[in-house]
Amino acid sequence: MATLAKDFTKGLWKEIPPFRLVLGLCPTLAVTKSAMNGLGMGAAATFVLLMSNIIIASLRNVIPKKVRLASYIVIIATFVVIVENVMQAYTYGLYERLGIFIPLIVVNCIILGRAEAFASKNAVIHSAADGLGMGLGFTISLTVLGALREILGTGSLFGIPVMWSSFEPFTFMVEAPGAFICLGLILGIMNVLGD
């Protein structure tokens, strides 16, 4: 039980992606123009990560070593197609804003990384805990980064104005350079905070 809790919580702080486990940078930088986008992207990635970890862990003794990466990619891609279609049907606005970064979940290195490093070696229940923890960690990171950039870049949070009325937004923060610099500084802060 203790190890199960550890598998789950390591994704929330000790190895939180992408701040400590620096993978999956493209969606991290691209969709965090607002907190809502970050949350949506995180939720989509969490679903794919959890489901692919479960399936890969349950098939880990069946998949031949030589074709394992191709097999993982097919499993991950299947869940990405499901997410894509569900989001197109039920959350069309978010689907439009996230754009090509929804199909690109398939090449998110966090998901393939967890499949290779964890789900291919551990039992289903542990892999599920790992996938859920990493997914939640990713969602939290993306929401925090999105919130920061949205507050500084537009003066609002989840679309609601939160800054004083004379606040002049740094439009720079919602553009590409702001994304890189903001993430770089957060990585620096995480290094200061340590474990």
Partner: peptide, 21 residues
Amino acid sequence: RPLQGTAIGLVTAGLMALAFF
């Protein structure tokens, strides 16, 4: 020290992105 590695790489990339703007 805290900025060494990827962190300073990202900040540099940000400045490059600004130049490409």
